[in-house]
Each structure stands twice: as C-alpha cells, then as structure tokens.
Design a protein around this nucleic acid. Sequence first.
DNA 1: CAACACAAAGTAG
DNA 2: CTACTTTGTGTTG
Length: 94
Amino acid sequence: MGKYRMSEFRRSVLLATLDIPEGETRTYKEIAKKIGRPNAARAVGTALKNNPMAPTIPCHRVVRSDGSIGNYTHMGRNSPEKKRALLKSEGVTL
DNA sequence: CAACACAAAGTAG
DNA sequence: CTACTTTGTGTTG
C-alpha cells in the first residue's frame, strides 16, 4: 500500500498557502506561525520549494517579513521576477 | 552531514 | 543608521 504521506509540516504549509486569498500576501513567518512552528520560517521556504510544481498552490503569495519579495522556484529555476509579476497581476501593491 | 524560497538578534563601522 | 554574521527551525539531497 502506497503511503501518500509527506511530512505533516509540508502538508500544513501547503494548506496554509492554499488558504491565502487572491490579491493578498502572507509572510513565511505567518505561515510558520499558523501551522504551529513560528520559528520555522526557513523550513516553510524549503517545503514550498519542493511543491510549486504547478500554479495549483499560490506559493507566489508568500513573501518575506521585511517586505522583500523573497524567492520563487519553478521547474527547478529561481525566478523572483516571475513572482513579482504574478503578484502585480493579482493587484498586489508592493 | 550540508544546504535551503526566512527571521531576529548580535557585532562592526 | 546600514551591513554583515550567527543561531534557530524542519525537510531534502
């Protein structure tokens, strides 16, 4: 029987990210806090890095706490510019 | 064991 | 004040 089970941490991160409304942004810290690991903002980034295989999850709505855009990996390629473009497309004022 | 899509506090100037 | 360094966190390679 296959175990469709990734770590709880990763699953929580994805769900929390999926819960971000359109046009809104959330910080890695906020996501971390939401899933009960307020000090694991870095782990949140690591978790998202392995998941943005599709626009299924609005990982581009997760930004840094200091207002920076943060990073964005898609298909093994880092494109912070793409992230910024997506946010702007949703009407997010940086 | 080392690295990473972060954060906050500490050190140096 | 700004810039760089260090420590904490959880998963992946």
